[in-house]
């Protein structure tokens, strides 16, 4: 399968990139690591006239520590995040999610910005042009059918990245550049919840950095992922959990604070399970009570999951696994 014809643009600065995006708005795609975009372009899911290659922009790359927290350039590779000592020490849930992404080879190319902006996935969508022709084009691309919810008008393609649930738990903020200037938005506001257009980004927007607040530093956290194969697979379900232990020691029987539970790959957007945070806040967490907390987190997380038949494994199974994974994530911190 060949790539469609396009012209590559290689800006050196953010300003130049934003200017190019504005000039070719609607006819341009940003390429970061390319691990998702390139296969999709071969399948003719995207046929832009221009491809904006932002790899040469130095200011988009790297991890900077400050009193406010950690600032991660959007072009920082997942492999670099995996290895960074401050992330390993203070934001361990992000590292745990990162190392489950695809394979080591892909993580050398793939970037955090790319993972956050990942296109939603569906078995009826991530297919070649010839394949899609044989069954009728769907809402997400070129048509108005939905094969997973026949007669439906909404696209249910699943958001299938691993790092966003961890970042949601950490309260990540995004730094977005546009011709109008810089704006900071919380990560959860990036996602629209619509499978066909999952990101609330204008075609002139450039994601520049991800900020992790100092307040989230040192949270206990875990990420659990459902997949059939031990590597390579996209998540079929994923759950991240973080909290702060009132006693500062997770093994002692103490009180859970700042609880956050987030799920991925079972909806068109990654979601914070607010009900779980509310009900678990202030609950005791220790040898005797962890199981109970886990069950509760699982029930509530599963309630928020709305998987459809967008991938291998039945929706019922994936939903059930959200329950199990949430419980296990919490128990792994006991």
């Amino acid at each position: 399968m060949s790539l469609p014809d396009f012209q590559v643009l290689r800006p050196r600065t953010n300003a130049e990139a934003v200017e190019l995006l504005a000039r070719h708005a609607g006819d341009i795609r940003i390429i970061a690591g390319g691990t998702d975009l390139v296969p999709s372009m071969r399948q003719k899911l995207f046929t832009p006239k221009f491809v904006l290659d932002i790899r040469a922009i130095a200011e988009l790359n790297g991890i900077r520590e400050s009193a406010a927290g950690l600032s991660i350039g959007a072009m920082t590779t997942l492999a670099a995040i995996e290895r960074h000592p401050a992330i390993r020490k203070n934001y361990s849930v992000l590292r745990e999610a990162t190392i489950t992404v695809a394979s080591p080879v892909i993580r050398n190319m793939a970037t955090l910005g790319g993972n956050i902006c990942l296109d939603t996935r569906c078995l009826w969508y991530n297919q070649s042009l010839a394949w899609r022709k044989s069954c009728g084009f769907c809402i997400k691309k070129d048509g108005n059918l939905c094969h997973v919810a026949p007669g439906g008008t909404k696209c249910w393609a699943a958001f299938s990245a691993d790092t966003p649930p961890a970042l949601l738990c950490l309260g990540a903020q995004l730094e977005i550049l546009s011709p109008q200037g810089v704006r900071i938005v919380p990560l959860q506001d990036l996602y629209s919840g619509a499978g066909e257009a999952p990101l609330k980004l204008a075609s002139t927007d450039l994601l520049a950095a991800i900020h992790l607040p100092a307040a989230s530093s040192g949270l206990h956290g875990a990420y659990k992922k459902l997949r059939i194969r031990g590597s390579i697979d996209y998540p079929l379900a994923g759950v991240a959990v973080t909290f702060r232990n009132g006693a500062g020691n997770p093994t002692a029987n103490s009180i859970m604070k700042d609880v956050r539970v987030a799920i991925t790959a079972v909806n068109p957007a990654p979601l914070l399970v607010r009900e779980a945070a509310k009900q678990l806040e202030g609950k005791p967490f220790g040898e005797a009570t962890a199981e109970l907390a886990g069950e509760l987190a699982g029930e509530l997380a599963a309630k928020s999951a709305r998987p459809l038949t967008t991938s291998a494994l039945t929706p019922e199974y994936r939903k059930e696994m959200v329950r199990v994974l949430a419980k296990r994530a919490l128990l792994s911190l006991a």
Partner: peptide
């Protein structure tokens, strides 16, 4: 691609418990 069929009636996602 322009010749796609119009969608049918009920939102089947509802029936599947998939709709919000």
């Amino acid at each position: 691609p322009a010749m796609v069929r119009p969608g049918t009636t009920a939102d089947a996602a509802e029936e599947m418990g998939g709709a919000d």
